[in-house]
Design a protein around this nucleic acid. Structure first.
Lengths: 257, 257
DNA sequence: TGAATAGTGTCTATAAGACAATATCCC
DNA sequence: GGGATATTGTCTTATAGACACTATTCA
């Protein structure tokens, strides 16, 4: 077969013939972050109102362009700080969306991230920027490990979402459902101390159906992800449950670019 | 908090102040494909020898820059055709690597893909391009769902790999191990018809340890991923096993950018 | 017939689901 | 004490691992 291209990142003649950066456009690279929380038993995501064309008035994920000298993870963290005033969240790369026409103006490739936060904290920043940002309730029209776009609601009104962001949110939900049993991510959606019931509510909101209480308790306690604090919840009209916190990670996860 | 940036893809004044494309560099965007196969019970990946600086003589993944009008998936498919003469493979997006210094010349963000193929077919293209490409045996130094860079060998000689490609291959192995039980991907590493023993060998090579034969058979047959053909393998010095093929997908998977 | 592996049936160990019983809080 | 939920313990059911046994091919 005739090889018309060369190795990646290889500035030889055959490459320049096709890809001379002075002659050919490069795509823009953005990061978009799906900030997810669970509130009142339902998945929610943070959306920002677009004030300029195109897609003016539609609701978009917080995002921004990647600076030439910053890593993707740092870009996502910066967007989170600057657009939502949030820092220190659980953050992981989700998927990269690059359909040529996903942005009507120019080629924008978006590296998307998933961020998790508890609803109290997210409500604070959302309220502080009311009008600009909203916590949209997510309606996930597919079960299990399937995928697809997700609908965003405020009260019973469906929000118009910008670009392919409904599909990006769908990918976030799919990732959440897929990782729930294999990584201690659900606790990232709760404050530092929480009960097993809190955690079960998170799981049920993400899965979209109820789970068995007994085996849920057994399974999670057996993972070693949780540490009992010896404290109990207060001011409840029933026997107070023990408060747990997330155990420190066991030096496993790495990976970035 | 003071908001210094605007919405993603939003060409208003505040954005242009920071990101005017005429004034600030954009990163280049490449795709790199990890073509994986299992040969003689061991994971292998296709590597291409670099003939130019930097990293001359090192071994790299087949890759190339994304064209301004093509989707990421199409770019990965094109790279596979042009660099390896391969088409019609199972192909899925893996992870996007974007550390600022991962390429010493300029900022290159690489959207990586995982491709699966059976070893007979991959040997054909590798032999046809001997010297330029090699099927490297992978040594995976970490167990289970952990991650990290992977070493590439030819016979007992460790190949020097280019850039962060050892980490990319590591991500490919991690993905394979994670998906093995939830998606019918192992059959993508075999010819159209295969025995359950073939499939078990694939699983053991990917996992890095043996699996229980009885429960493996039960579990795989229960997934509905496999269809018996009624045929049996031939020319074996023992009772021939039934040949299976992959059942058509049940309209679940979607997603792209 | 012997060697080798496929495929079936059965038993045991482990994890999940169901459910009863007791514990602990607020009112 | 009554109401509500936490927590523990036990029983049942489903699944995984272990292993014995039969089946089928080639030499």
């Amino acid at each position: 077969m005739h090889v018309t291209e060369k190795l990646p990142h290889d500035p030889d003649a055959a490459f320049l013939e096709t890809y001379d950066p002075a002659e050919f456009d490069r795509p823009s690279v953005a990061v978009d972050v799906v900030v997810v929380t669970v509130d009142a038993g339902a998945l929610h995501a943070l959306l920002v109102r677009r004030r300029e064309a195109p897609q003016r008035g539609r609701w978009a994920l917080p995002g921004g362009f990647v600076r030439i000298e910053e890593s993707l993870d740092r870009a996502a963290g910066r967007v989170l700080r600057d657009k939502a005033g949030l820092r220190g969240l659980y953050l992981e790369q989700l998927y990269t969306f690059g359909a040529p026409a996903r942005d009507p103006r120019t080629r924008v490739i978006s590296v998307t991230y998933l961020a998790l936060i508890d609803d109290t904290r997210l409500h604070q920043v959302a309220d502080a920027r009311a009008g600009d940002v909203v916590l949209a309730r997510l309606r996930v029209p597919w079960p299990g490990q399937a995928g697809g776009p997700v609908l965003a609601y405020v009260a019973d009104t469906k929000l118009p979402t910008a670009f392919d962001h409904a599909a990006i949110i769908g990918m976030a939900v799919k990732r959440l459902r897929g990782k729930l049993d294999y990584a201690p991510i659900s606790a990232e959606l709760l404050p530092e101390r929480f009960t097993l019931r809190d955690l079960q509510d998170i799981h049920e909101a993400i899965r979209g159906h109820e789970v068995n209480k007994d085996s849920f308790r057994r399974r999670l306690l057996a993972t070693g992800w949780l540490l009992p604090t010896g404290e109990r919840e207060a001011d409840v009209a029933y026997r107070p449950a023990e408060l747990y916190r997330l155990a420190p990670p066991t030096t496993k996860e790495t990976n970035d670019g």
